[in-house]
């Protein structure tokens, strides 16, 4: 039951996100670009540092950055 509710909750959030995206994307393309772009920038830089950790595990012996 709780899983079902969680799905409904997530579905609702998705629908709201979609509606906001449609409205903002229509009225203000650059605002929309900012929302998407900033999320992307944050994710890429997090991915970069997580990649750093994996690289560290592989190159443990060299100690060079």
């Amino acid at each position: 039951m709780s899983i079902f509710l969680r799905f409904i909750g997530l579905g609702l959030i998705l629908v709201i996100a979609l509606l906001v995206a449609v409205f903002v994307g229509d009225q203000g393309p650059w605002y929309f670009a900012w929302l998407i772009g900033t999320t992307m920038i944050v994710l890429i830089s997090v991915a970069g540092t997580v990649l750093f950790d994996t690289q560290s595990d592989n190159h443990n012996s060299t100690g060079e950055f």
Binding site: I41, I44, S45, G48, F52, F65
Partner: peptide, 18 residues
């Protein structure tokens, strides 16, 4: 160094897209 290299990586990626 551990600290700085990680910060450097994050900031560089952050900066290039920005």
């Amino acid at each position: 160094r551990e600290f700085a290299a990680r910060s450097f990586r994050m900031a560089a990626l952050f900066g290039i897209i920005s």
